[in-house]
Design a protein around this nucleic acid. Structure first.
Lengths: 149, 149
DNA sequence: AGCGGGAATTGGAATAATTCCAAAGAAAGA
DNA sequence: TCTTTCTTTGGAATTATTCCAATTCCCGCT
């Protein structure tokens, strides 16, 4: 049967196939978990989130799948100084702001012209596959949302 | 006796004193080691370099001293994805280029105006204590230096 | 010189995050 | 169906770093 009738290929399935890899329930699940809550979770955090739905999954598999997703360019791995790696499904060029108080992380859009300016700093002959930009600092205290309470 | 006659206060001694810390042979030695070979060594590498001169020093002390130097703003800690931390005595604003072939690291000068452009990406209210920029890529194969050989 | 107290160093144990490994399980192709 | 290859899994191993308790050092004061 034509699988496309029942299961339109997800971007995930396509990317995997493109690399000669298989789509698996674990990979799907982990990718969906990342898309669902985009707060830059660690591998451990992903582990506990997906276990709700698939209690038998192992931490090693979480590491494996995350690595696979990174290989397929579906997910970015983000490293803050010394801490555990974090994962991010935002594929637009962006920097990260790391709040030193709360530990929270926010994406900062990175306009093409600024990125270009940065890339232009490289001496001739140097070529950059990836440019990582991280801000460390404080963000304004979250305004108490004007709610009815 | 006036110590300044014999021992003009080094920048290190000053910075330490400023933070209420003491200058010690270990701190001096480690700081000198960093200045001497600015190839962004890891703590382990620093350890083996300084042991040549002070065989009794311990790895824990190397970690302690490096941390102290970072606190005093005499040294920057540089983290590449997952690898051991590296240390850098260059205090000018600069980015790092990490060569994925050789693992070598080079400083890339960061002009104030570019830095300003980057800082300007932050939404209002956000303030950044530090901005980290890392290039990952390849540098040109080292040209065989035109030597007499 | 001697003393008291805080700071620093030291070795070794402990921790955290990740990777490795070998065995068992699925899936796809011939 | 049989074979091959890719995946997952649990647990052991590794790596980098931090923690800890016991000296040791150094400084100011007397």
């Amino acid at each position: 049967m034509r699988p496309s009738l029942h299961e339109p290929p997800t971007p995930l399935a396509e990317r995997l196939a493109h690399s000669g890899l298989r789509n698996t329930p674990q990979r799907e699940l982990i990718y969906r978990a990342l898309l669902e809550k985009r707060d830059h979770p660690t591998a451990d955090e992903v582990y506990s989130r997906v276990r709700a739905e698939m209690p038998s999954i192992s931490l090693a598999t979480v590491y494996n799948c995350l690595e696979t997703l990174v290989q397929c360019d579906l997910v970015r791995q983000v490293n803050f100084e010394r801490g555990p790696a974090r994962y991010c499904p935002n594929l637009h060029p962006h920097a990260h702001f790391h709040d030193e108080k709360s530990g929270a992380t926010h994406d900062i859009e990175l306009p093409a012209d600024v990125l270009e300016r940065i890339r232009a700093l490289l001496p001739p002959g140097y070529s950059a596959r990836a440019i990582e930009i991280t801000f460390h600092g404080q963000m304004p205290a979250a305004q108490p949302t004007q709610s009815a309470a």
